[in-house]
Amino acid sequence: MTAPALVVEGLTVRYGSLTALDDVSWTVDDGEIVGVIGPNGAGKSSSFAAITNTVPHEGECRLYGASTAGMSTQALARRGLRRTFQQNSFFTGLTVLENAMASLQVERATRLLPGIVTPWRESRARAGIRRDAGALLAEFGIAARYHELLPDDLPYGLQRVLSIVLAYGGGTRVLLVDEPAAGVGGDDMRNLADLLGELRGRGLAIVLIEHHMDLVMEIVDRLVVVDRGERIAYGPPADVQRQPAVLEAYLGRTA
């Protein structure tokens, strides 16, 4: 039996005397979107920080069966586990195209000595990365007329798309997406839903934190609901949304 793409088991995060996440477990498989939802302060973003080893935590995470304990964020990225952030995070001094090139360069960079001895190979490799970066952007709806702009000059909806595309572009297998629809609506929301669905169709395992419940209920395969650091529900969206504990967490009442 094939191991899940990512297993989170007994994940616990404490900030001093505050327990932000308490013994939370879930899994995500290739070609699946798992949603993580809950009220503000429930511990959702702390779970992403723990999974990527940017905060101390207890519990275990396994990436395709291998423990991630002690791995740096960079090492996890090289193994295919990457994330986006609530706030856009770009190389602000680089153009949109150059940002995309940087995301691909991680996987294809030549070593220093061959680059010195045979610089023509480095030049040819860079030209190939530039071509592929342009194709990647266009493929996900960022047209060529935007490629030479700085990311901050893009329409905001495209900035949110760009953040996902850049995370995906360099060999990602498991993608943690943190509130991609924050500040967007209408056609931009539709584009995000289509983008995430397309990535799932390519076999990515996606974990989505999102407050826009229409988006969540449309695209996720399973839901994890956390409240005050604890997992209070887990399963198919249609089942989860009817559970009394979930209604209590969101609406302050039981069914």
Rank of each mutant, 00 (worst) to 15 (best):
M1N: 08
V7T: 13
T12A: 14
R14Y: 04
R14H: 12
L18S: 03
A20M: 08
D22G: 02
D23M: 06
D23E: 07
V24H: 10
V28C: 08
D29I: 08
V36R: 10
G43K: 01
S45P: 14
S46E: 07
A49E: 00
E60P: 02
R62E: 02
R62W: 01
S67D: 12
T68M: 12
T68W: 02
T68S: 02
M71A: 11
S72V: 02
T73G: 04
A75L: 09
L76E: 01
R82I: 00
R83Q: 02
Q86A: 06
N88E: 13
T92V: 03
G93R: 10
E98M: 04
V106P: 05
V106L: 10
E107Y: 05
E107H: 10
T110L: 10
L112A: 10
G115E: 13
I116T: 13
I116S: 10
T118M: 15
R121I: 00
R121M: 07
S123H: 13
A127I: 00
A127Q: 09
I129A: 09
I129Y: 02
I129Q: 09
R130H: 09
G134Y: 05
A135I: 08
A138V: 09
E139F: 00
I142S: 13
I142H: 06
A143H: 15
R145I: 08
Y146C: 06
L150K: 01
L150Q: 11
D152C: 00
L154T: 14
P155Q: 07
Y156Q: 11
V161G: 05
V161R: 07
A167T: 03
G171Q: 03
T172G: 04
R173V: 00
L175H: 02
V177G: 03
V177Q: 01
E179S: 12
A181E: 11
A182T: 10
G186Y: 05
D187W: 12
D187G: 15
R190M: 14
N191R: 13
L192S: 09
A193K: 12
D194E: 07
G201I: 11
G203C: 06
I206W: 00
I206V: 13
V207I: 14
I209E: 09
E218N: 12
R222E: 13
V225D: 06
V226K: 05
R231K: 15
A233G: 04
Y234K: 02
Y234T: 04
R242I: 06
A245V: 13
E248H: 13
R253K: 11
